[in-house]
Design a protein around this nucleic acid. Structure first.
Lengths: 228, 228
DNA sequence: TAGCCATTATTGTTCCACAATTCAAGGCCG
DNA sequence: CGGCCTTGAATTGTGGAACAATAATGGCTA
């Protein structure tokens, strides 16, 4: 008995999970800016599912750190505090630096993945929108962590980067921000692939340092906006 | 209106989360061995909550990796495969080794936590049950990772260790297994606190190597049992 | 204008219902 | 007698309505 999709042994996917995916995209793409109240009746109606099912989806996003729940106040798209940014970069330092240092043990497929992602980012810089560039850059760093070869760490790190995109979502002058970072991704990529672990570690550490400061600026600026 | 607990400004906690906590304890303590079917009507009745609410709790445990859901087949307490064990130890290597190497930057409070947990484990060895010893040892390794100073990594690692306890839950000869590991925890603790990062790294790496093999034996033995 | 109170919205949870699907048992056929 | 199919029960995934508890809102009073 054939399914609608061409793929055969496809596991059926619960409705809540599908909606969670859709919402995750919307949030990370900036369609639902930080601070947005997510009212379940409205969203359930929009997606054409029951309130319960939608709440399940929101639960998942809460677990991923994209939204925050407070009792009897419902779900809100998380707004990053400066402490949140510090936390994100603590994780990035731990995992990305560990990945670079262990890159000697990484499989060749993972290393090829690195190159692919950097190239994708470079292509994106040429013509695409800023958001695409940011996404491509984060995908590179995701690939970096994938050198560790751990699925659960990959999933965890994906959630962390998704949270980081919340900062991108509130960024004002978009076009100017991203491009300078891509050459540094390229540099890290080449150093790792060249087996120069020491230099790669240093470059990554500096990258994260600078990146954290830049993101902190964005978040602080947004905080001012909020207070005002 | 006072709550049952003495604490005052306590955030009210959703019912589903409370049940999730109770179930998590039961699973990690071995009350619900791996492979157990979790039928929601029965569990909902037992906890005196609605089916939807219970399913929310199960959802959370699924995210934590303690149970696995399959469409139209419901929730089952996860049974660790050998690949799962490898995955768990990949994470442990990454995070615990990173923690040991960064221990120079750790706060003194965190270092004191290390000592406390080891001592608790040593006390447990003296009189308590095997399960308490295992728990105490894992708490020490949790404290090790806490040296990284990242709340999200702590939460993530807690989930990983919870999964590891699924292996303990199927262990046959309980009393003999744990004690030898505690002195090695003590050794790692002292080396870290003494600032001997190199030796501490080596000791931790060897510990994880041996531990992984031991756990793999347990899981393989259990697999044989299952097939038979 | 500031503070208080009642109304309204929204959430967290419950109960009930029903289609989809799996599982077990029994019957049928070779 | 054994294997296969059918059938019925059990269980899951989802929907819908309801209700208490809590938060937000707006009007009223002083």
């Amino acid at each position: 008995m054939a399914r609608l999709s061409g793929v055969v042994n496809e596991e059926p996917v619960p409705a809540g999970a599908q909606v969670a995916d859709a919402l995750r995209v919307r949030i990370t793409e900036g369609g639902l800016p930080p601070g947005t109240q997510l009212r379940d009746t409205a969203l359930a109606a929009e997606f054409g599912i029951a309130r319960h099912t939608l709440r399940n989806a929101l639960r998942q996003l809460e677990y991923e750190g994209l939204i925050s729940y407070r009792m009897h106040k419902g779900a809100v798209v998380k707004t990053l505090s400066t402490e949140d940014v510090h936390e994100i970069y603590r994780v990035r330092r731990t995992l990305e630096l560990a990945a670079v240092q262990q890159s000697a043990l990484a499989g060749s497929a993972a290393l090829r993945g690195l190159e692919e992602r950097v190239r994708a980012a470079e292509v994106a810089v040429a013509g695409e929108s800023w958001n695409t560039v940011g996404t491509a850059s984060l995908r590179f760093h995701q690939a970096l962590v994938e050198l560790l070869g751990s699925r659960s760490i990959d999933r965890f790190f994906q959630g962390i980067l998704a949270q980081l995109r919340l900062a991108f979502a509130v960024m004002p002058d978009e076009a100017q921000w991203q491009p300078p970072w891509i050459p540094r991704d390229r540099e890290i990529c080449d150093l790792v692939r060249g087996g120069q672990r020491g230099a790669a570690t240093a470059a990554t550490r500096q990258y994260l340092e600078d990146s954290e400061l830049a993101v902190l600026d964005v978040v602080r600026a947004d905080e001012m906006n909020g207070r005002k």
